[in-house]
Amino acid sequence: MATVELRFSAQPEHVRTARLVAAAVARRAGVDEAVLDEVRLAVGEACSRAVGLHRSHGIDAPVHVVLTEEEKLFSIEVGDEVPGSGGGASAVPGVRASGADDGDDGAEDEMGLAVISGLVDDVEVTSGESGGVIRMSWPTTPATVLP
């Protein structure tokens, strides 16, 4: 069962909230302090990408984030509802990063995935009929027992 689940409307201003919540839950789950910056960045990238995909496809549904504390593992799943989006923008003809005024950052979407794969050792990107999911996980250290 998910430890914390978030659904937010596909608006850029909510990505920060998702980052903060993910980092807070990761910290509580026992993810090393030194890795929390990576968690924050990776979840932000995944959410920004999902927001961009929803907006460019005119999808009103919310972006879905599932944070799960497992034994020795903390996992995050960021799901979008764009069919076939998991392979990156290049897999979906005509998809571009939203808000690109003159194509400056058309490759942003792929750069986001590049950052995620550069940061996270355990990452899996899948896509299906109902949308794409980026699943990432980090090891946790056992919580110290408080007196």
């Binding site: 980052r19 924050r40 960045l41 932000g44 990238e45 920004s48 990063a97 400056d104 950052d105 490759a107 942003e108 750069m111 986001g112 590049a114 950052v115």
Partner: peptide, 13 residues
């Protein structure tokens, strides 16, 4: 305090 790929895209632009 924080920079992501969107920010990188803007700097490259």
């Amino acid at each position: 305090d924080f920079l992501d790929s969107t920010g990188l895209g803007v700097l490259v632009g």
